[in-house]
Nucleic acid binder design. Structure first.
Lengths: 219, 219
DNA sequence: GTCTATAATCTGATAGAC
DNA sequence: GTCTATCAGATTATAGAC
């Protein structure tokens, strides 16, 4: 019996080591794309960064797109975690309008805090790459999370989330492309949030009159 | 005297031919990036397309980025022309709200009608590329044109244009990335236009109540 | 202004020894 | 699982003949 148990544990250990190596490679990939641009990732540089020959990376990932896929998935897992913080921070105790405004600020902060990640998650920019269905499921979960946030505020308009993501990713991409590191569009997030609320849930605005919401940029 | 005149005319002709070749190369470059993605442009393919060796292209452009720069400039010249049509189409006779709504629709149509152009003009996606100051000046002229459109409608809010471009490029990029060729976000353009008007110029909305505006997609 | 030739380097990916 | 060796090709760009 102990033989079987040991065998399993060895396999476990191997799987753990393998997962750790994969994670290390993905982490190195993020560092590289932040330096050289999303499309500038090369297997050789990646190997160098993790102290391997480039060819050895193929023991962990089938192809370069497989690495992009892991990054894509991780990015949306980060979004899920980042936005979940809101539910704790802005809690159920506060009024819906404030909660939604905090959501807007945090989503903007998430996007601008890592422009390359934003590019991978929200823009179709790498010619051949398409996420696997497993990774795409995480993306859908993140969208679902946003829908749930609206639903909790009593917003049933099915277009509300589409309109909100468009406005917020628009502010983000303008900020990243035309004023990187600046505040030109970040300044407008609160105003855009009010504008959105007035459009999709005017009744929520009636009570709270212009409570300027500030949120810390890093979690 | 005829000698001098002839000399000038020969130089003229040379300059004309050169400009024509440059234009032909840029046109071929657009075709290629639409097929292979913006970053997928290569001098070899480009040479093949125009019936030259790749090396000969360097007689017309100093570098690959120099070609991107010409495309960038041309893209904004196209925007200037495209948006200028509005002034004729929706004319000075119509009311300001309708004019602005038409502007919104046409800007959206301009962006979605060529996703690769949108990527080059509005997203920072090519690692090394930065537009020359001459080309950037055209980009500023296009922004100035939009400001002028707002001013003509009596909108003096300096943030109005920033908010509007963010909302409209947001709708565009979501449409391109998540529902290419579809209508999911295009449907929302009119609603977003009303939302924007209510935010930056509510007085313009008071008179005209929901005049659904439709605009042809190709000019 | 177009060509040949070529530099000098990078690319993703595979085969097979250990 | 990591290595060496290598494929088979791409890349931008320059030099110099014509």
């Amino acid at each position: 019996m102990s033989g079987k148990t040991n065998a399993v544990s060895v396999l476990d250990r191997r799987a753990t080591r393998r997962a750790a190596s994969r994670a290390e490679i993905v982490e190195a990939a993020w560092l590289l794309v932040r330096e050289q641009g999303l499309a500038g990732l090369s297997m050789r540089d990646l190997g160098d960064r993790v102290g391997m020959r480039a060819q050895s990376v193929y023991s962990y990932f089938d192809s370069k797109d497989d690495i992009y896929d892991a990054m894509f998935r991780q990015g949306y897992e980060e979004q899920l975690a980042w936005m979940a913080d809101d539910e704790g921070a802005a809690g159920g105790s506060e009024d819906p309008a404030t909660r939604l405004r905090v959501m807007a600020h945090r989503f903007f902060a998430f996007c601008t805090s890592d422009p390359v990640r934003y590019q991978l998650l929200f823009q179709r920019t790498i010619p051949g790459f398409e996420p696997s269905s497993a990774s795409y499921a995480v993306a859908l979960a993140a969208l679902e999370q946003m829908h749930a946030g609206f639903a909790r505020a009593g917003i049933t308009d099915p277009d509300a989330a589409d309109l909100a993501t468009a406005v917020l990713t628009g502010l983000t991409s303008q900020q990243i492309a035309n004023d990187p590191g600046g505040m030109r569009w970040e300044r407008l997030v609160d105003r855009a949030g009010t504008m959105l609320l007035r459009e999709v849930a005017p009744h929520l605005l009636a009570k709270t009159r212009k409570p300027t919401t500030r949120v810390r940029r890093t979690p």
